[in-house]
Design a protein around this nucleic acid. Structure first.
Lengths: 160, 160
DNA sequence: TATATAATTTAGGTATGCCTAATTGAGTGT
DNA sequence: ACACTCAATTAGGCATACCTAAATTATATA
């Protein structure tokens, strides 16, 4: 009934870890079209044995093409999932960076958030990022916000 | 090395579920100073048996006062943790609501985010919420953003 | 007080995911 | 062709966290 383990809050989503693996494979196989156990293990910071196990599961669910001991690649379905995950993540990074979170931390937190937030939340964050991007020139308020972050005082309040 | 299971990304933080339980107990025992297995189970949407197990762990770690079959309450330490978690959460809800996420979803996602984001991220979100709150009158850009959400066009671009 | 009912706990399982150690397999060099 | 090495897989375990069913214990009512 929870999402600590495999199943997510809503049943449409894959487990966080499943998404992580798909995204990793997606990134790693971008250029050549394939990747391998060792690379995935390094990318995700786990041991090859764990990757091996997970790949069997992913293959049986139709997300990757994988014959034991051979190279790994995504099926069209796996690619679709990975792209969604990736897109969510990129938006989140931009968003957090806009708000002044250091890039590196933004990356990490985005990676976590992408897996677990409702689509409504992602939608709003996406809109926000676009809103900022589409703003003509530098949005004044953003500068104000940055100033506020540094000084701790809202610029509009100290206009004397 | 991961955080799917017990241990979190950084070692200071308790597992997500541990925090959930502490927060639940905190909420439920606010008025009377104590709560009970059944209530916690209902609050978290798990079975009493699971709560029972978890309480033993929480007690052995010094977060709750709990003698089998009796009422449950937080130790000062448990309360401290719960309060931190709670504060993080409230900020997140405010933040998401500001960005137009429906209240109910904001609550849920906040509950998830609170457990896993870096403190730097929380800090920035907190600042952002404060920034908005301390803005004199209605911040223009927020209205613009709302308009943008509805129309899909940045108001500043269609000023003719 | 005795008994019925409600609350808890225990026992025994499940699933995810990760790890180590031991094996298996495949490609390379001699 | 054989041995070496490195990659990948299997086997056996661990921890978290949940569940169901069965056994307890408490409480409330007749």
């Amino acid at each position: 009934m929870d999402d600590q383990n495999g199943r997510e809050r809503n049943d449409f989503r894959l487990s966080r870890r499943t998404e992580d693996y798909l995204e990793a494979i997606y990134c790693l196989s971008r250029e050549r079209g394939y990747t391998r156990v060792k690379e995935i293990a390094k990318y995700l910071g786990v041991k090859p044995a764990s990757v091996s196990e997970m790949l069997s599961k992913l293959a049986s669910r139709g997300f990757v093409v994988y014959e034991k001991r051979l190279l790994v690649s995504l099926t069209p379905e796996g690619r679709m999932v990975a792209e969604c995950v990736r897109e969510r993540r990129e938006i989140l990074v931009k968003f957090l960076v806009t708000l002044g979170v250091p890039e590196k931390i933004a990356e990490e937190d985005a990676c976590i958030m992408e897996h677990i937030l409702h689509k409504e939340t992602i939608t709003q964050l996406k809109k926000f990022v676009k809103f900022v991007e589409e703003s003509p020139a530098d949005p004044m308020w953003l500068n104000h916000f940055k100033e506020y972050c540094e000084s701790g005082v809202h610029p509009c309040l100290k206009v004397e």
